[in-house]
């Protein structure tokens, strides 16, 4: 049987900001249709790793998407190859309407690139998040934190991605919104979308993901299944729990 090529494969990736290195020789994989979570303490480098994959920070090492090297590409070129990004602080366009934010997420023509990924539309966004449909013409800046997170998800999906990078989606949200976002991630996972999830709330991350990596001081210190991580108290104490 032919070996499956990972959708995303990082091989000894280092990254940082200016002269400051944050990541050191990180290697990880996400297989097609798989949800993988990346956990660790604040400052461990989780967000930097996601930004490095998305092409937002300078990085060294190899980052391959379905075997194609994307480590040297700019952010828009990475996005056009089907990597969508839900950033930590949502980064919605406050002065534009909800619908305009969604339209921006759907590159057309040359912007889209050759690869087709997870099919998505504005109508599906409103079906998944009815609240966005109700506020379609409202400026995105007036949305609540939870609604802005819905918009950040829907906007990322508008790019019909092959891989969704999600950075701290539940941060600062009410328990009700946290539950909604968790359910959304499960829906997307079950629909076959590949997801790399950075999540501070360990229970949510391990419930959703098929595999987990733990990042500590910019390096991978654990790789395994969620059940293995749950049972490995030493790793949790040393690198996750505060």
């Amino acid at each position: 049987m032919a070996e499956t090529v990972p959708l995303l494969a990082l091989d000894r990736v280092s990254a940082g900001y200016g002269p400051t290195r944050v990541l050191f020789d990180v290697s990880l994989e996400v297989n097609p249709g798989e949800t993988v979570t990346l956990v660790g303490r604040n400052g461990a480098g989780r967000s930097t790793l996601v930004k490095a994959i998305a092409g937002r920070v300078a990085r060294q090492g190899s980052i391959r998407l379905s075997g194609e090297e994307i480590g040297g590409l700019r952010a828009f070129e990475v996005a056009r190859r089907g990597v969508a990004y839900v950033p930590e602080n949502r980064e919605i366009f406050a002065d534009l309407t909800v619908e305009e934010n969604l339209v921006l997420g759907a590159p057309v023509g040359k912007e889209r690139g050759a690869m087709e990924g997870f099919a998505w539309s504005i109508a599906q966004s409103y079906a998944l998040f009815p609240r966005l449909g109700e506020r379609a013409k409202a400026p995105a800046g007036v949305l609540s934190g939870g609604e802005q997170q819905m918009l950040a998800f829907a906007r990322a999906l508008m790019g019909c991605p092959r891989l969704l990078l999600v950075d701290e989606p539940t941060e600062g949200l009410s328990p009700l919104m946290v539950q909604l976002i968790a359910e959304t991630l499960v829906t997307l996972r079950d629909a076959g979308l590949s997801i790399l999830l950075v999540e501070q709330k360990l229970d949510i991350a391990l419930d959703i993901a098929a595999r987990a990596y733990v990042l500590g001081h910019g390096s991978i210190v654990f790789a395994g299944s969620p059940s293995e991580l749950r049972s490995c108290e030493s790793i949790r104490r040393a690198w996750i729990e505060v």
């Binding site: 998305a54 092409g55 937002r56 700019r74 952010a75 828009f76 996005a79 056009r80 990004y85 950033p87 980064e91 366009f93 406050a94 002065d95 534009l96 305009e100 339209v103 921006l104 997420g105 590159p107 912007e111 889209r112 690139g113 906007r155 790019g159």
Partner: peptide, 18 residues
């Protein structure tokens, strides 16, 4: 629309494939 968004946050616009 892309120009108006880029005025506010060029990095995010780039991450959307523009």
């Amino acid at each position: 629309l892309v120009v108006r968004a880029a005025l506010a946050n060029p990095a995010m616009v780039e991450s959307l494939g523009h």
